[in-house]
């Protein structure tokens, strides 16, 4: 079992449910993630693993259960001692701690690369233009794109776009970073570079990282903890060595066998 660190977890899900009409995507998720942990989330497509991240990012609102970030409820707030649905300001205050990188990059096509990275630091965090530019350039340098600050996203390759998207998220300096299948839309030869970048980010900071991925080698070698999500529940939650050598459940074993034989 994992050692529980002291203090409250930075992320806590309790009985989290999400349905789209009749489709029950998340069926009661209970999960604690301590600060600084790098967690890989694996599972078949449609298992609900992306929805888990999207609920934390408030892109989808849960239909039941509770989400806490640093001990504060995300979707409810206290008013006169009573628990009421959170208003916009409350959600924005908590959401400030979280950022996300998407499968399809979602860069802003009407802004040059540097402005893609500085727009939110200026208008959301309130940085001055000089500060934001400096910060933006340093993150673009970190992702290896110093020479592309004046390009438009349409002029970049898929791998470069995803690097910009990562720099854009890093520039918000969130405590929690969510990566939603960020290599799935890339050509195979570009995947390695992006994964190296993820490793670098992990080593550099104390950021909490949740990574939904199909890259089993990455999950095994580079994360602190692996979750296997199956049909809307966390079926298995263990350290990478155990998950990949001796999974507890038959379903996990079958999933890993299928995926690993494809990626061998």
């Amino acid at each position: 079992m994992l050692e529980q660190e002291a203090g409250p977890p930075i992320i806590r899900f309790r009985g989290l449910e999400k349905s789209f009409g009749d489709l029950h995507v998340l069926r009661g998720i209970d999960l604690d993630i301590p600060e600084g942990q790098c967690v890989s989330i694996i599972g078949a497509s449609g298992s609900g693993k992306s929805t888990l991240l999207r609920v934390l990012m408030t892109l989808e609102h849960p239909t039941g259960g509770r989400v806490e970030v640093e001990g504060e409820s995300l979707y409810t707030m206290k008013r006169n001692g009573e628990e009421v649905p959170a208003n916009r300001a409350h959600i924005r205050r908590i959401r400030r701690k979280i950022c996300m990188v998407f499968q399809h990059f979602n860069l802003f096509p009407h802004m040059k690369v540097l402005r893609n990275v500085t727009e939110a630091p200026i208008h959301v965090l309130g940085l001055s233009r000089e500060e934001a530019n400096q910060r933006g350039r340093s993150y673009l340098e970190m992702v290896g794109l110093s020479d592309k600050v004046d390009a438009y996203p349409a002029q970049l390759s898929g791998g470069q776009k995803q690097r910009v998207a990562i720099a854009r998220a890093l520039a918000m300096q969130p405590k929690i970073m969510l990566f939603d299948e960020i290599t799935s839309a890339l050509d195979p030869e570009l995947v390695g570079g992006i994964l190296d970048l993820l490793r670098e980010i992990k080593q550099q900071g104390d950021m909490t990282m949740l990574i939904v991925t199909h890259e089993m080698k990455f999950a095994r070698d580079s994360s602190d903890r692996v979750l296997f999500v199956d049909e809307g529940v966390i079926l298995e939650d263990s350290d990478p060595q155990q998950m990949f050598t001796n999974p507890e459940h038959e379903r996990t074993r079958r999933f890993l066998d299928t995926v690993l034989s494809e990626q061998a």
Partner: peptide
């Protein structure tokens, strides 16, 4: 305008007004 643009704007914590006028309308 693709849905992903709204989602990126939410992830970057823009206010609804900023989302509309800085991200969606210019495109």
């Amino acid at each position: 305008v693709p849905r992903g643009q709204y989602e990126a704007a939410i992830a970057l914590n823009f206010t609804p007004m900023q989302r509309l006028w800085r991200i969606i309308v210019p495109q």
